[in-house]
Design a protein around this nucleic acid. Structure first.
Lengths: 362, 362
DNA sequence: ATGAAAGCGCTAACAC
DNA sequence: GTGTTAGCGCTTTCAT
């Protein structure tokens, strides 16, 4: 009942190598795939030579079956084509490669159902680890099912690590969203801005909430509050940002505008910049704009975007490290990664553009 | 000799489901994983119920071993974090998901050795297909070894598809690099530009050569040639573009400047724009700039970048389709995808900025 | 240090 | 339509 690659010659197996080298299957396995047991250098050489001449390539699924765990790992994210996730995927891939693993990347577009399905697929694949990079924001019901799926996976020896908070159950890499946001806010205050608008993400999105918290707390500490019309929620996308700034600008007269707009994601900020340009509003002269993440694009926007730098690649690498080391030993581990503001051309001192903007408290 | 997920309970197997449902292994297999054979609706329901209550999850490696082919596919590219490749990876992932496959993505940074190694890993995984998305430019020696590795993979039933030309051996998705470049060039000519500089990619990079060919031929047809100092090679990266435009500008006096610069990749063009801005050279007033690819970033640059739109997502999807359908039937298939110029704010009529630029033939 | 052999979980002949 | 059974290629115990 042997099926084989459609019409192709069947692959060279370990058995072939063993026979060719005149040793047992066990010995061949030991030399070709790291075992604790040791083999005479003499035989080892012979086996290697045979493998080489025969062009032996191990059958990974067979190994995975026998070892009960594969040489792969999975990453769950919203969209690989999004620069934020692309960079994380790269970091994960890099660390995976260093550990001899291949990485399966799955774009879920933030759809919890697809996320759930993806977890099951990865579990079925017996991946060594799952990295959660999409900022999960699901209804409690689906959230619970996702946690269950993950728990089942872990119960069978799988490792899970999260990037940004996905609940207390997982080892997680935490960029300093809150502190980064606070620092950026202080920088804006130092520039004299008092009339600050904020564009944040969907309500259930943890990263967004953290960042928003950092902003609002800092503002509060300075005795400031953000009027409701200047606090907009938007998808973390270009169009989301564009629409949000539109709402802010349309909410009041021209002299009732904020002097600074803080978009809690760079991709959003790009939309803000675009809309501002279309409306002929000068940045940073009439209004300062800042983002968050420091995706590569940030430098290339005009004006170059002030933002908070997140070590995206590093976040991916760190998550893999977390997942691959000492899982299940002590309690849950959390590694915090610093996030520093980077001030570029899109922000300037309040009132720089002339007498128009009022820099006082709204 | 049963090893199991570190300390965890062992997984529910098909056997468990069969026993629980009171049917044979074969029957359970047939209902749970599509077989041609049909099963009574009655039994089928029972099996499904058992699988559900037991929380059965198939063991993909075991299936792959038994079927001699896995439920995965691999994509080889330079760097997922690069917007061009990120979009392609997304398209591949999308099509893969539609076919019920998971996708392994590997960033090789264009290193032929790593590419070779990656192919072997993917082959070992028994992936169903390999998509070549990195524009291969290797020395002939490594190129040959890569072709061999791919041939071995195909000999065992693997499918290969390429995005952009990777040699005559593979089914390939061909964006109209040459025609797109030609059309863009004609658009520049129509704007009155005659003094055109070109920034292309590394010499061995096929895509770059195709695009360059399109530009040069079109120019030649108009009786124009690009002076050597205005034809620069650069890595397809931001810094590559930046350095290249620097060389062009430094090559002559200010009145010896090109009136238009054609960068054969958007990411390069972003660098060009940055350098121009730093030098205080107005775009498009003093010099027009255009790119190639139409990555999402292009719209967000200031001025928004004129470029050639490539259907990146579609390219990825199409490659998967190619790989997954009728491989090995007729000869090699090539699907051409249109590439249309998109004129935005970074290009303008020659001489628009005042009397300075000479729009005549250099 | 080496070999023989028993599975890992599943699929697909083949028989009924 | 359903069950029996022989592998798929590899790892790992167990004996030598």
């Amino acid at each position: 009942m042997v099926r084989q690659g459609e019409g192709g010659p069947v692959a060279v197996t370990l058995g072939d190598v063993a026979r060719h080298a005149g040793v047992s299957l066990a010995t061949a396995s030991r030399v070709l795939n790291g075992s604790t047991r040791t083999v005479t250098g003499d035989l080892a050489a012979k086996v290697k030579a045979s493998a080489e001449t025969l062009g032996y390539l191990p059958n990974a699924p067979a190994q995975a079956l026998a070892r009960a765990t594969g040489a792969t790992l999975g990453v769950l994210l919203h969209d690989v084509a999004d620069p934020y996730f692309g960079a994380i995927a790269r970091g994960v891939g890099y660390a995976a490669a260093k550990a001899g693993l291949l990485s399966l990347v799955i774009s879920t577009d933030g759809d919890p159902e697809r996320e759930l399905h993806a977890i099951r697929m990865l579990h079925a694949q017996r991946v060594r680890a799952i990295v959660l990079a999409g900022s999960a924001y699901s209804d409690p019901e689906t959230g619970r099912r996702i946690d269950q799926a993950l728990a089942a996976y872990r119960a069978q020896g799988g490792a899970v690590a999260a990037i940004t908070d996905h609940g207390p159950a997982y080892d997680t890499v935490l960029p300093a969203n809150r502190q980064g946001a606070a620092k950026l806010t202080r920088a804006l205050l130092a520039l004299g801005h008092r009339r600050i608008a904020v564009i944040t993400g969907p309500e259930r999105m943890r990263v967004a909430e953290e960042r928003l918290g950092g902003v609002l707390d800092t503002l509060a500490a300075a005795g400031l509050a953000v009027p409701e019309r200047w606090l907009q929620r938007a998808e973390f996308s270009r169009d989301g940002g564009r629409a949000a700034i539109g709402r802010i600008l349309d909410a009041g007269a021209a002299d009732e505008r904020p002097t600074a707009v803080l978009a809690l994601s760079d991709i959003c900020a790009a939309g803000v910049l675009a809309e501002l340009r279309d409306r002929g509003i000068g940045v940073p002269d009439q209004v300062s704009v800042a983002g968050f993440d420091d995706i590569p694009l940030a430098t290339d926007l005009a004006p170059a975007l002030s933002t908070v730098r997140l070590p995206l690649l590093r976040m991916g690498e760190e998550a893999v490290r977390l997942a691959l080391t000492g899982q299940g030993n002590g309690g849950v581990r959390r590694v915090e990664l610093a996030a520093e503001p980077v001030l570029r051309a899109s922000t300037g001192p309040c009132g720089a553009g002339g007498p128009t903007p009022r820099c006082a408290n709204p």
